[in-house]
């Protein structure tokens, strides 16, 4: 099993950085500076208020983020947040 990975994906001028380790995972969308992770808590959440996301795993959340960027050709924090927490 891969213990620790770090990836960078460029899409429509956005950079989606995602990393995974035994302790947890994180996704950072730049330049919007949006952080989604499950570090320091037992659940997936979106910053800054650490609102819980129902989907647990990195891959599923990553697909939702990529779909959002592809559909909108940009990142709308409020819309993305709604899509993730529903």
């Amino acid at each position: 099993m891969k213990k620790r990975t770090e990836n960078k994906l460029k899409l429509h001028g956005k950079t989606i950085n995602y990393s995974m380790s035994l302790k947890g995972w994180s996704i950072v969308i730049m330049p919007e500076n949006i952080l989604i992770d499950n570090f320091h808590h037992d659940f997936s959440h979106i910053h800054p208020d650490r609102k819980e996301i129902k989907t647990e795993d990195l891959q599923s959340i990553l697909i939702l983020v990529i779909k959002h960027v592809n559909n909108n050709k940009c990142v709308n924090y409020e819309t993305l947040r709604k899509e993730l927490i529903k």
Partner: peptide, 28 residues
């Protein structure tokens, strides 16, 4: 937030210097 991720990684790797990290760049 990228600084935060690097900060967390640095703290972890400082205690686990032999840990292997796979860094990928994905292009479509």
């Amino acid at each position: 937030n990228l600084f935060l991720v690097d900060y967390e990684n640095w703290k972890f790797l400082r205690d686990n210097p032999e840990e292997e990290l796979e860094r990928g760049e994905i292009k479509i």
